[in-house]
Design a binder for these strands. Structure first.
Lengths: 249, 249
DNA sequence: CGAAAACTTGACCCAACTCAACGAACGTGG
DNA sequence: CCACGTTCGTTGAGTTGGGTCAAGTTTTCG
């Protein structure tokens, strides 16, 4: 038997960043049965149209993304996910998947039983509320992405995506602050921003030329957070990072 | 005292379209205390950055929309809402609003006490699940809007918005099927699609020119649902209209 | 009836796309 | 550990969908 406490600690960490939990809440989470899985890059975790699987995946390491295809065949990435994120909350109570979820890198997940998680959401109200909040924050991020692809020009748009990636990495405690490993090809960046890979390339070069970012291979760093976030029109309000710190009402 | 049953029946209708409810569930909803409010067009119901109000609004008549502003001052409409929609579920458990909600037309709402609704979501699990599902469907719509503004060209994009409006109007039982009153100016259509009002105008004319839509004032009708939905690349899967009809798992 | 808002149309422009070619990096198997 | 095929990144040249600006016209509404 695996050590539940160690494996599911990212889940507790995530939920505690959403709502205050007590010892019993934590114990109930640690008691969840789960299995470990590894996915290769581009592997599908969820396919649009299918009935939801019997499991809910928690990302332990690596990256994943949500994606939809248009009838013409073009692809829009609608969100990115990293360690600590729950991938199936968006389908927890729905009878059919409305989008695809794919591994971006090699991805390790802990798969919790879906009905156990559904039960937990009602049996432990504080945990249920934390799950609600997590799903609502995902929805907030979707709204910001609508703004990003709908209103911002290429430079601002790419910069905004990088800022979100950095802010969420920092919040999740991934890597060291200020340096980020961007696990996406320029084509994938294009699919996430509604640009072509060619234009993403030119845009990244332009951002580097004015000193806003530094690139070496897939490693990315910012000259100054102040600079890049101003260029991106980025405000982290929509990530609700301080949610659990404020008195719940 | 107002007749709760009559006023809150759209709420029950909406929640029953999300999950199966029993008599006790319905009674609990009907027992919710509420107040009626009327908003003039463009009035703000929620402002970005503010702590959530003590009430959750249900739309009784009229239309509303969610909106975010960029630092440069441009506006992106991120969703539309009509009779039966709950406007504050997206903030139900969050400590700070991340977007604005505005009346599109004259808008009548029934405002339910926020903490009463929060309590209901845990006390009546079937109702709580229906609320979860409603919030998840809103999130699904946000994802589709990311695809819409990110990937589709102007004609397809506008057509898709019209299709969603029609499909949701039909599902909510508003007006007669096949004819719709589009309550938006072309500038608002532009803000919803990431286009300029000038280009929306040309695009609507182009759609009318090929016979896909008919316009008279603000009234809109489709030559054939088949035709417009094909031109829009529209599939109603993401609206999860049949959610409650399938066995819940 | 009059003013303001919304719609329409034309002329011109530019940010981002397309197409195409090539170079660099990666990973895989011999 | 190297060869080699494949994916990814880079760059240039030319095109275009949608934006901008500006001037009417129509509708709405007080």
């Amino acid at each position: 038997m695996l050590d539940n406490r160690a494996v599911l600690s990212p889940l507790i960490r995530k939920l505690e960043s959403r709502n205050i939990l007590d010892d019993e809440d934590r114990a109930a989470i640690e008691a969840l049965p789960f299995t470990l899985r590894t996915y290769q890059p581009a592997a599908y975790l969820v396919r649009e149209g299918q009935a939801p699987l019997n499991r809910c995946s928690l990302v332990l390491s690596g990256y994943a993304f949500r994606q939809k295809l248009t009838v013409e065949g073009s692809r829009q990435i609608v969100s990115l996910h990293m360690a600590g994120d729950m991938l199936d909350l968006q389908h927890l109570f729905l009878n059919r998947a409305d989008h695809n979820v794919q591994a971006l890198t090699v991805l390790e997940t802990a798969d919790v039983d879906r009905s156990a998680l559904q039960a937990l959401s009602t049996d432990r109200p504080a945990v249920g509320r934390a799950m609600w909040i997590d799903a609502l924050i995902d929805a907030s991020i979707f709204r910001e992405w609508v703004v990003n692809v709908g209103q911002r020009d290429a430079k601002t748009r790419v910069a905004h995506l990088l800022c979100e990636f950095a802010a969420r990495s920092d919040a999740a405690g991934i890597g060291e602050k200020g340096v980020y490993e961007l696990p996406m090809t320029q084509e994938q960046l294009g699919d996430a921003t509604g640009l072509t890979s060619v234009h993403v390339n030119r845009t990244l070069k332009a951002l580097a030329a004015v000193g806003l970012i530094k690139r070496t291979k897939r490693h990315l760093s910012f000259e100054s957070w102040e600079g890049i976030s101003r260029a991106a029109g980025f405000s982290s309000l929509y990530l609700h990072l301080d949610q659990a710190l404020q008195p719940a009402t």
